[in-house]
C-alpha cells in the first residue's frame, strides 16, 4: 500500500528511472507554452489594432474569430486545428507538387495553442489600448510622431500596466493548456507522465509529481510577473 504512494526510485535519473523523461517532457511543455504565448501576443497585438483601427470587414472578421474561439472548448479546437491545419498544409504541398511532410508536434502544438491564445490576447490588449488616455496619443501626434512611433513609444508602454494582469493570466493558462496536447499524442509533460504511470503502475505518485511540477512552474511565473508589473508600473502612484 505505502509503496503505491512513494516508489521514489521510479523518478531517478539513472537506470530505468523516469527522471530524464519527465525533465524532457517539462522542457517540451515550456517550449510549446513560450512559443504559443509569443504567437498569441503577436496575433493579439495585430488583432487589437485591427479591432480598433481596421476597416469594417476586418473588425467583423476579428469579432467572429475571438467569439468563436472563446465559445468552443480548447480540446475540440486543438483537435480541429491540429487535423485541419496539418491536412490543409499537406494538401497545399501536394497541389504545388511537393511531398507531404510530417509536421512536427512542436510546431503544430505552438500553432494551435497560439491561435487559441491570440483570441484571448486580442481582447486583453484591446481593452488595455482603449484605457490609454486619448490625450496622450493626441499629444504624441501633435509632436509630429508617425503612427508607428506613437504605437511604439506611447501606446505600447502606456497600455502595459493595464494589460499585464490579463497577460500574466494568459501565460498561466497556456502553460496548463499544453497538457491538452497529450490528447493528440504529443509527448509533453502530461503525456510523459501518463506513459510513466502506465509503465510502472505508480499512477498516484506520477500524477502527483506532475501536478507539483506544474505548480512550481506557476509559482515561479507568478514571481516573474510580479517583478515585471512592478517595472512597468514604475513612476505610477500606488493604487492601494
Amino acid at each position: 500500500m505505502g509503496e503505491m504512494f512513494a516508489n521514489w526510485h521510479h523518478l531517478s535519473f539513472s537506470g530505468d528511472g523516469w527522471g530524464w523523461n519527465l525533465l524532457r517532457g517539462l522542457s517540451s511543455t515550456v517550449q510549446i507554452a513560450a512559443g504559443a504565448y509569443l504567437l498569441g501576443l503577436t496575433i493579439g497585438l495585430l488583432g487589437a489594432l485591427g479591432k480598433i483601427n481596421g476597416s469594417r470587414l476586418t473588425q467583423w472578421l476579428l469579432e467572429v474569430y475571438t467569439t468563436l474561439i472563446r465559445a468552443v472548448p480548447e480540446l475540440v479546437l486543438i483537435l480541429l486545428l491540429y487535423y485541419a491545419g496539418t491536412g490543409l498544409i499537406n494538401e497545399l504541398l501536394e497541389l504545388m507538387g511537393y511531398q507531404p511532410v510530417d509536421i512536427s508536434g512542436l510546431v503544430a502544438g505552438i500553432a494551435v495553442l497560439g491561435i487559441v491564445q491570440g483570441a484571448y490576447a486580442t481582447e486583453v490588449i484591446r481593452g488595455a489600448m482603449l484605457a490609454v488616455p486619448r490625450g496622450q496619443v493626441e499629444a504624441a501626434q501633435a509632436f509630429g510622431m508617425s503612427g508607428w512611433k506613437v504605437l511604439l513609444r506611447i501606446i505600447l508602454p502606456a497600455m502595459l500596466p493595464f494589460a499585464l494582469p490579463g497577460l500574466s493570466n494568459l501565460w498561466l493558462i497556456v502553460t496548463k493548456d499544453t497538457a491538452l496536447l497529450a490528447v493528440v499524442g504529443f509527448s509533453e509533460l502530461a503525456m510523459t507522465t501518463r506513459q510513466a504511470a502506465g509503465a510502472t503502475r505508480a499512477y498516484f505518485m506520477f500524477f502527483a509529481v506532475a501536478a507539483g511540477i506544474y505548480l512550481a512552474l506557476t509559482l515561479v511565473s507568478n514571481q516573474v510577473f510580479r517583478l515585471l508589473e512592478k517595472r512597468v508600473r514604475r513612476g505610477q502612484p500606488d493604487v492601494n
Binding site: 496548463k176 503502475r201 502527483a208
Partner: peptide
C-alpha cells in the same frame, strides 16, 4: 486555491481517476 489554479485540470482528473482509482481496489 493556489493548488487548484496552479495545476492543469487534466492532471487533477487523472490523479483522481487513475491515481486514487488504482488505490481503492487494493483495500
Amino acid at each position: 486555491c493556489t493548488l487548484i489554479r496552479g495545476t492543469p485540470l487534466l492532471i487533477q482528473l487523472w490523479l483522481l481517476y487513475y491515481g486514487l482509482g488504482s488505490l481503492f481496489p487494493m483495500i
